[in-house]
Protein backbone atom coordinates (compact mmCIF):
# COMPACT_ATOMS: atom_id res chain seq x y z
CA UNK A 1 0.00 0.00 0.00
CA UNK A 2 1.19 3.46 -0.87
CA UNK A 3 2.25 5.77 1.96
CA UNK A 4 1.05 3.24 4.53
CA UNK A 5 3.16 4.78 7.29
CA UNK A 6 1.28 8.08 6.87
CA UNK A 7 -2.22 6.66 7.29
CA UNK A 8 -3.82 8.29 10.32
CA UNK A 9 -1.39 11.21 10.40
CA UNK A 10 -2.73 14.73 10.53
CA UNK A 11 -1.48 18.09 9.45
CA UNK A 12 -1.17 20.93 11.89
CA UNK A 13 -4.35 23.00 11.44
CA UNK A 14 -4.11 26.30 9.59
CA UNK A 15 -6.31 29.37 10.02
CA UNK A 16 -8.27 30.40 6.90
CA UNK A 17 -10.48 33.39 6.28
CA UNK A 18 -13.51 33.06 4.00
CA UNK A 19 -12.62 36.17 2.08
CA UNK A 20 -15.25 38.13 0.13
CA UNK A 21 -13.09 38.78 -2.93
CA UNK A 22 -12.00 35.14 -3.09
CA UNK A 23 -15.63 34.00 -2.96
CA UNK A 24 -16.58 36.48 -5.69
CA UNK A 25 -13.79 35.22 -7.98
CA UNK A 26 -14.70 31.62 -7.29
CA UNK A 27 -18.41 32.25 -7.96
CA UNK A 28 -17.53 33.98 -11.22
CA UNK A 29 -15.21 31.15 -12.31
CA UNK A 30 -17.94 28.52 -11.85
CA UNK A 31 -20.53 30.82 -13.53
CA UNK A 32 -22.55 31.00 -10.36
CA UNK A 33 -25.47 33.38 -10.65
CA UNK A 34 -27.01 33.54 -7.19
CA UNK A 35 -26.71 37.01 -5.65
CA UNK A 36 -26.35 35.42 -2.20
CA UNK A 37 -22.65 34.75 -2.94
CA UNK A 38 -21.76 38.21 -4.19
CA UNK A 39 -24.37 40.89 -3.42
CA UNK A 40 -24.12 42.09 0.17
CA UNK A 41 -27.49 43.83 0.09
CA UNK A 42 -29.26 40.66 -1.05
CA UNK A 43 -27.36 38.62 1.52
CA UNK A 44 -28.27 40.99 4.36
CA UNK A 45 -31.95 40.60 3.53
CA UNK A 46 -31.67 36.78 3.41
CA UNK A 47 -32.05 34.30 6.28
CA UNK A 48 -28.25 34.04 6.46
CA UNK A 49 -27.70 37.76 7.03
CA UNK A 50 -24.29 37.47 5.33
CA UNK A 51 -22.84 36.31 2.04
CA UNK A 52 -22.63 32.55 1.52
CA UNK A 53 -19.65 30.60 0.17
CA UNK A 54 -20.31 28.10 -2.68
CA UNK A 55 -20.49 24.42 -1.61
CA UNK A 56 -17.12 23.47 -3.11
CA UNK A 57 -15.33 26.65 -1.97
CA UNK A 58 -13.51 24.86 0.91
CA UNK A 59 -11.40 23.27 -1.82
CA UNK A 60 -9.47 26.56 -1.91
CA UNK A 61 -8.40 26.53 1.75
CA UNK A 62 -4.96 25.76 3.14
CA UNK A 63 -5.14 22.57 5.22
CA UNK A 64 -1.48 22.43 6.20
CA UNK A 65 0.92 19.63 5.37
CA UNK A 66 1.25 16.11 6.65
CA UNK A 67 4.89 16.09 7.66
CA UNK A 68 7.05 13.99 5.36
CA UNK A 69 4.26 13.12 2.91
CA UNK A 70 5.39 14.06 -0.59
CA UNK A 71 2.89 13.20 -3.32
CA UNK A 72 3.90 13.17 -6.98
CA UNK A 73 3.21 16.55 -8.59
CA UNK A 74 1.90 15.13 -11.87
CA UNK A 75 -0.35 12.32 -13.01
CA UNK A 76 -2.62 11.96 -9.97
CA UNK A 77 -6.30 11.46 -10.76
CA UNK A 78 -9.02 13.00 -8.63
CA UNK A 79 -11.60 10.24 -8.39
CA UNK A 80 -14.16 11.63 -6.00
CA UNK A 81 -14.93 14.64 -3.84
CA UNK A 82 -17.39 14.70 -0.98
CA UNK A 83 -18.34 17.43 1.44
CA UNK A 84 -20.76 17.52 4.31
CA UNK A 85 -21.75 20.67 6.18
CA UNK A 86 -23.06 21.08 9.72
CA UNK A 87 -24.30 24.53 8.71
CA UNK A 88 -23.82 26.96 5.80
CA UNK A 89 -20.36 28.49 5.37
CA UNK A 90 -20.43 32.29 5.53
CA UNK A 91 -18.16 34.98 4.13
CA UNK A 92 -16.06 36.69 6.77
CA UNK A 93 -15.67 33.69 9.05
CA UNK A 94 -12.35 32.35 10.20
CA UNK A 95 -11.86 28.61 10.29
CA UNK A 96 -9.19 26.27 11.48
CA UNK A 97 -8.58 23.72 8.72
CA UNK A 98 -6.65 20.48 8.85
CA UNK A 99 -6.23 17.26 6.93
CA UNK A 100 -5.54 13.61 7.51
CA UNK A 101 -4.64 10.65 5.28
CA UNK A 102 -7.54 8.35 6.22
CA UNK A 103 -6.93 5.32 4.06
CA UNK A 104 -4.63 3.79 1.47
CA UNK A 105 -5.61 0.73 -0.54
CA UNK A 106 -4.80 -0.96 -3.82
CA UNK A 107 -7.09 -2.40 -6.47
CA UNK A 108 -6.23 -4.43 -9.52
CA UNK A 109 -7.91 -3.02 -12.61
CA UNK A 110 -7.84 -3.69 -16.34
CA UNK A 111 -5.32 -0.87 -16.58
CA UNK A 112 -3.00 -2.25 -13.95
CA UNK A 113 -2.55 -1.81 -10.22
CA UNK A 114 -4.27 1.31 -8.93
CA UNK A 115 -3.53 2.94 -5.59
CA UNK A 116 -6.28 4.83 -3.78
CA UNK A 117 -5.60 7.51 -1.17
CA UNK A 118 -8.45 8.90 0.89
CA UNK A 119 -7.89 12.32 2.46
CA UNK A 120 -10.21 13.84 5.01
CA UNK A 121 -10.19 17.61 5.46
CA UNK A 122 -12.07 19.47 8.14
CA UNK A 123 -12.96 23.07 8.93
CA UNK A 124 -13.80 24.20 12.45
CA UNK A 125 -14.74 27.56 13.86
CA UNK A 126 -12.17 29.15 16.15
CA UNK A 127 -14.41 27.97 19.02
CA UNK A 128 -13.85 24.39 17.87
CA UNK A 129 -17.29 23.81 16.31
CA UNK A 130 -17.14 21.58 13.19
CA UNK A 131 -18.45 23.37 10.10
CA UNK A 132 -17.59 20.90 7.31
CA UNK A 133 -15.84 17.64 6.52
CA UNK A 134 -14.54 16.70 3.06
CA UNK A 135 -13.31 13.41 1.65
CA UNK A 136 -11.20 13.18 -1.47
CA UNK A 137 -10.22 10.03 -3.30
CA UNK A 138 -6.97 10.36 -5.23
CA UNK A 139 -6.05 7.61 -7.69
CA UNK A 140 -2.41 6.71 -8.34
CA UNK A 141 -1.95 4.83 -11.61
CA UNK A 142 0.67 2.14 -12.10
CA UNK A 143 2.74 4.50 -14.27
CA UNK A 144 2.81 7.14 -11.54
CA UNK A 145 3.50 4.50 -8.89
CA UNK A 146 6.66 3.46 -10.77
CA UNK A 147 7.95 6.97 -10.24
CA UNK A 148 7.43 6.77 -6.47
CA UNK A 149 10.21 5.10 -4.50
CA UNK A 150 8.20 2.38 -2.71
Amino acid sequence: MLYEEFVGRRSEAVKNLVERGAVRKFAEAIAEESPLYVDEGAARGSRYGRLLAPPTFPRTFDYGRIEGLELPTAGLIHGEFRISYERPLLVGEELRCGMQLKQSYDKQSRRGLLGFLVFERTGESLEGERVFTTNDIVVVTEAVRRGIAV
Binding site: L52, E80, R82, S84, Y85
Partner: peptide, 9 residues
Amino acid sequence: YVKTFRSRF
Protein backbone atom coordinates in the same frame (compact mmCIF):
# COMPACT_ATOMS: atom_id res chain seq x y z
CA TYR B 1 -28.50 25.22 1.33
CA VAL B 2 -26.39 22.40 -0.08
CA LYS B 3 -25.65 20.36 3.04
CA THR B 4 -24.00 17.37 1.42
CA PHE B 5 -22.36 17.12 -1.97
CA ARG B 6 -20.57 14.26 -3.67
CA SER B 7 -19.02 14.22 -7.10
CA ARG B 8 -17.40 11.30 -8.92
CA PHE B 9 -15.35 12.12 -11.97
